[in-house]
Design a protein around this nucleic acid. Structure first.
Lengths: 335, 335
DNA sequence: TTGTATGCGTTATCAC
DNA sequence: GTGATAACGCATACAA
């Protein structure tokens, strides 16, 4: 494997001149440039980024730490991050924590060792500990998708969960439903919490506070299946259910099917997060869609702008709007 | 950011002793070890992997280069790779080429600069040029999913496409279909080619060679939609279609729907590759499923074993079996 | 069991 | 416009 010295020797110049030609930094005469480029081509020289980064203290690498890589919402966020980072000449390291704090710590340790220039973090718990740890290493961080405690000195990019939940549940109420359940994610995750808050607010506004039915679980299909199974045994059975994310919705849908019931005839359903169009043979869920790609893009832009301007200290919270898409699963007005 | 020197000073030892304690290499007295560990904790010291790798010539990083990250087949392959690599203490860099040779070259350049220890490659074109380029940099490579020219000195892990296609088409023939079309991927991709070969073989064995209907396109939903649209205008219309992958199948299904027709009543459908269970509200496609996770696992194992034993030179081609799953889309016997 | 000298491949700094 | 020198942070080889 040829090094910069080999190229220099072959081109009859010094290593630093080769460096300048390769990086288009500083001046070099036309003739020198050509000789160097010829030598590079002949030797098949590939610069060693490890050495370059060690010296320059910049890796041009970002880390994206998400909680569930099998969730299309997060893969879309990831595409937004990747596209934006790539356009700016950065590469992205993807890490999947499965909502586990331990895994999160493990991955953060790894990417900090790798000297990433910045971290985009979907925190497994909204306590702010991980954020502090990253900042202690003089590494930039932007929080994605979830709220942070007010005390945390950090940028946040997320979507309006409370209002989205409110509107989905209000839609059910307007259709005539009274017994409505919510099946949500982990109690300690802000999005799971916020969507229950939105549900409660809609129920309260309709004078239905007495009949709250709230389940907390995980943001997974399996958990959605379980929660729906329990919910279907209630007497009287709820006539509608709000699933706090897409995977919970799919699990719940299967539970309804397996119980010999139908959506929306026997039980209406609404959910947060859509499923990607290219995987959906039958799109039929009524949903509040988060601008996942845009969330990834904005978070990355924020991180990159801080990288290029480390001075400013005014942290911001960007809260993006959702979009309501009404399909069949919410059903028609109850008679 | 603390360095190994800061830790050494604080613990009252030399840097190399700190290195030994951290890496559990060489000896260190109980007392020294404790002093070092205390210093590490107090300073929040995080080792710099860049420096370590530059010196040790091992990054413990692999690159996975795939052609379509939105295809669940490849994300499952990726999970197999990631899990296996992670268990062995390696991290994985993911690259998506969108079937473009140019993108492939770009990414290979990047990961070779990063000094990855090995590359797992789904080549956009089965010519072997990319493989040679990687090997020229003294970097290990294993080819995934696609055939290589016999001349290529490289390991390959793939699935039996010809036989899978044969059995899917034979299933349609046994159900009584005679006018059967295949809609496949790019002509230059071995899996697209092999699945057409399997189709042709099944048609020939049934004496139906005269009525071959073959479309080449891309392994995408959009291409599947287009090819199916064309196919539906044929007179007489085919009674069955074989989609060469999952995304083509979804596109074709939508085209059939948009034409006011039904699967399987108006046209039967079979396909290569399943859709992931956690995304499928209605599983109904009859498919030949590739062991995607296992393919990723085997390829990674092969790569890692070569890393630990660079001597051996006997390259191998691992061809894994598929599984046939019959659901509704293939329909019942024609009367 | 611990330390010293040295080098990995590149670029920042200063000099010519 | 080009080059010499040193340094980034760590681990290998050898010595004590």
């Amino acid at each position: 494997m040829a090094t910069i010295h080999d190229v220099a020797k072959r081109a009859g110049v010094s290593p630093i001149t080769v460096s300048r030609v390769i990086n288009h930094s500083g001046y070099a005469s036309q003739e020198t440039r050509e000789r160097v480029e010829a030598a590079v081509a002949e030797l098949g020289y590939v610069p060693n980024r490890l050495a370059r980064s060690l010296r320059s203290k910049r890796t041009h690498t970002l880390a994206l730490v998400i909680t569930d890589i099998t969730n299309p919402f997060f893969t879309t966020v990831a595409r937004g991050v990747e596209d934006t980072a790539s356009d700016a000449g950065y590469t992205v390291i993807f890490c999947n924590t499965d909502e586990s704090e331990t895994e999160e710590q493990k991955y953060l340790q790894v990417v900090l060792q790798q000297q990433v220039d910045g971290v985009l973090l979907v925190p497994a718990r909204s306590t702010g500990e991980s954020v502090e740890m990253i900042q202690k290493q003089n590494t930039l961080v932007v929080v994605l998708d979830r709220r942070m405690p007010a005390s945390a000195q950090v940028d946040v990019v997320r979507c309006e969960s409370v209002e989205g939940a409110y509107q989905l549940v209000k839609l059910l109420i307007d259709l005539g439903h009274r017994r409505i359940a919510v099946i949500s994610g982990p109690r300690l995750v802000s999005t799971a919490e916020d969507r229950v808050i939105g549900y409660r607010r809609a129920m309260a506004d309709a004078g239905l506070s007495q009949t709250d039915i709230v389940y907390y679980g995980a943001f997974t299909q399996a958990s959605g299946y379980e929660m729906a199974q329990q919910l279907l045994t209630l007497q009287p059975r709820p006539t509608a259910v709000f699933a706090a994310n897409n995977l919970i919705a799919i699990g719940a849908f299967k539970a309804v099917q397996d119980a010999g019931l139908r959506v929306p005839e026997d039980i209406a359903m609404v959910a947060f997060d859509d499923l990607p169009a290219n995987l959906l043979v039958f799109p039929f869920l009524t949903v509040a869609v988060q601008p996942a790609y845009e969330m990834g893009r904005r978070a990355t832009q924020l991180l990159l702008s801080r990288l290029n301007n480390p001075a400013s200290q005014d942290f911001q919270e960007v809260v993006l709007p959702f979009e309501l898409i009404v399909r069949q699963s919410s059903g028609s007005p109850l008679s």
